[in-house]
Design a protein around this nucleic acid. Sequence first.
DNA 1: ACCTGAACACCGTTCAAGT
DNA 2: ACCTGAACACCGTTCAAGT
Lengths: 192, 192
Amino acid sequence: MRADAKKNHSHILTVAREVVTEHGSDASMRDISRRADVGLATLLRHFPTREALFEALVCTDLDALTQKADELETATSPGEALASWFRDWVTFTQSYRGVVAMMAAAHTNPDSALYASCAAVHSASARLLLRAQAEGTARADMNGDDLFGLMSALGWLVDLPSFAPRADHLFHLITSAILTNRPSNDVKKTRR
Amino acid sequence: MRADAKKNHSHILTVAREVVTEHGSDASMRDISRRADVGLATLLRHFPTREALFEALVCTDLDALTQKADELETATSPGEALASWFRDWVTFTQSYRGVVAMMAAAHTNPDSALYASCAAVHSASARLLLRAQAEGTARADMNGDDLFGLMSALGWLVDLPSFAPRADHLFHLITSAILTNRPSNDVKKTRR
DNA sequence: ACCTGAACACCGTTCAAGT
DNA sequence: ACCTGAACACCGTTCAAGT
């Protein structure tokens, strides 16, 4: 990779981060290229698709997220580990508006530039789920696909400005559907 | 309304139904006008926005849905009434791909042509929720906004082709988060 | 190697001109 | 009243021409 290309690459990413922060995942590629003072064709050469651009935008965040999952797998109690990681996921989705919808659409399409990222998230969450199920805190009648679905659906929902204020509560509702027999959910344990 | 206008109106709706069935809520307005053998400006005159077109497309279905809610409010047990109506909602969302996302985005925007429809769904579901909460089958720490959010999120999720096959199960997961102490959920009741 | 302007086929919006 | 073609400002894709 030539020096000028390398410079363009990182500069485009910097500008893209700004534009996407403003306009979400359906930001105009043309707009990004203009703000980066670069030909549209140049942007498309570095990132052939919108998904390729987003993959580059979120990959470091996702790496941190999957690494977090690895740590949680040996540390805390399985149920709390799943809940904690789920919360981090929601925080991640809120950092780039619309990205969760892209990932949910891409997660079964091997041709998508986001496919590998989705698979990584999927397997990380599936492992945490299995541990919690083995412990008995997560309901047994769901699998990794269901969890990925619920995580995506919640991320999509709180992406909407009108639901963002209730994000914490909606997270709690979904979490208590997944984690049963959790101390914080079980009212009877606290009586007397 | 003149005779030719009336004819165009209904003809456009017929064609729009076809095109939307094929391409979902982001179908091209131009495409619809072409397939209806009508000028694009004519389509836009009858339905100034995409949301206005969709409002016309779904209004009869939504009327039936809210009427169903009225019936359920006096008939079955409150918990089962809510679950039954929720299921009908999911079936509705699956009939027009992408429409649930439009409604979720429009439900706090009074300027949207879909606002009234969203409000009707919202209030219908809120009433069913209140009844179930009074009975003690629905969890007390959620309100109509939360329910509308969860209903939208599930509708959005099963709109994705990859999650459609698991629609029933995902519905069950969400439902059991809302309805607690339900006979079908309570395993202990069936022992012995 | 890498960049770019330009042509292309789309999209929704708007409006003056038609019947 | 109602319809329409055309102009407009966008969009992403593609590629021949430049350095």
